[in-house]
Amino acid sequence: MGAGKVLVLYNYSQHLVKGEPKDILAEHGVIACAHAVAAALREAGYTVEVVAFSTDIEATLAPYPPKEWIVFNLGEGLEGRLFEEARIAWALEAMGYRFTGSPGEAIALSTNKAKAKEALARAGVPTPPWKLLRDPAEVDGWRPDGPLIVKPVSEDASIGIGASSVVTDPHQLRERVAYILNRYRQAALAEKFISGREFNISLWGNEPEILPLAEVDFSAFANPLERIVSFAAKWEPDSFEYKNTPVICPAVVDPELKGRIEEVAKKAWHAIGCRGYARVDMRVDTEGNPYVVEVNCNPDLSPDAGFYRAARAAGYTYTEMVVRILRLAVEGV
């Protein structure tokens, strides 16, 4: 089915420079993914090396000439440092490797939620109103319209998102901003909380093809303000949130709304500059208006993760999905 030499590259961190101790769960989630990807590629006939790096990527890749190896890039950074994921892609490009997923520019843009929202707004992509807060004192005098969700400006994987992230008054907002500044050493992005449905839209290809839509089922949560995909919902299997946020794929959605969601997802892909594969997360309000809340350039490809869930719903096996993502890189998409 395939032939060639593939380096499955991922990061391994033993500790974090910021954040909560439990955040290491997200860092370590890539390990099992790397081995699953490698097994799929071997099944397809590729020669595969699985390489973890915990220091500098340049030294790690020295034994693997770029003319001989293509990189299946699962690198997500080191020790929770800001923008390491983008630096990995930039380094791969500078060293002459072909690699899967998005270029460094797109990863950097999507990682900085404030910059990403600016790019989305310029492209006419609907995204919730927001404000960047660098100090709790900046809350004074601000009168937002309704509840807010407060996030670290440059994290992904729901890091820094928990039960206290949705706030309804200035005191709660100041507390959450202070927490993010102190614990995550970065500004806080406060955006209007869109009460409604949440969809994950997986895309891949050149002029991107949209895989079957997925919807998070929040029916176990009576309080609309608790209907979020928190860190616990993603990474803590014993938590109520993890056990009660199943994902329905294909989502049950009427054709008109489906069309709007898909159109917005494609515009978001182009606004950020995604390549190869990506996921766009949206909230849809009670009037049926979709809002982009996140663009993930290199989403999790684990067998139990959302991207494969969508690919499987479209008829792909895990191996077929992995091989297609690799071939998109080989073809220079």
Results as ranks from 00 to 15, higher is better:
314 A>L: 02
241 E>P: 06
160 G>D: 05
19 G>P: 06
51 V>R: 12
290 P>V: 05
277 Y>G: 08
221 F>M: 06
228 I>M: 03
96 G>A: 10
197 R>G: 08
208 P>N: 07
180 I>H: 10
140 D>K: 10
156 D>A: 12
71 V>H: 09
126 P>N: 04
64 Y>Q: 09
92 L>T: 04
8 V>T: 08
161 I>N: 01
58 E>D: 12
241 E>Y: 00
151 K>A: 07
146 G>H: 05
194 I>P: 10
100 T>G: 10
100 T>E: 03
319 T>L: 01
195 S>N: 09
325 I>Y: 08
35 H>A: 01
109 L>S: 02
15 H>T: 09
103 P>S: 12
300 D>R: 00
231 F>H: 09
142 W>E: 08
201 I>T: 13
69 W>R: 04
195 S>T: 13
289 N>L: 11
265 A>T: 09
249 C>E: 09
264 V>R: 11
225 L>V: 08
176 R>F: 02
163 A>Q: 10
328 L>K: 11
144 P>W: 00
35 H>R: 05
213 L>C: 08
38 A>W: 05
208 P>G: 00
162 G>K: 09
117 K>P: 06
135 D>F: 04
25 L>T: 03
240 F>I: 01
16 L>M: 13
138 E>N: 11
295 V>I: 00
253 V>C: 05
195 S>E: 15
31 I>W: 02
84 E>F: 08
228 I>C: 01
322 V>M: 07
325 I>M: 12
217 D>R: 04
127 T>V: 03
104 G>F: 11
221 F>N: 04
266 K>Y: 07
244 N>S: 07
241 E>Q: 15
310 A>C: 15
255 P>V: 08
48 V>K: 05
119 A>V: 11
304 D>S: 15
264 V>S: 06
101 G>N: 10
12 Y>M: 02
313 A>Q: 11
319 T>H: 04
273 G>K: 12
211 L>P: 14
191 E>G: 07
212 P>K: 13
263 E>I: 04
247 V>W: 06
151 K>R: 10
67 K>L: 00
188 A>I: 01
330 V>L: 15
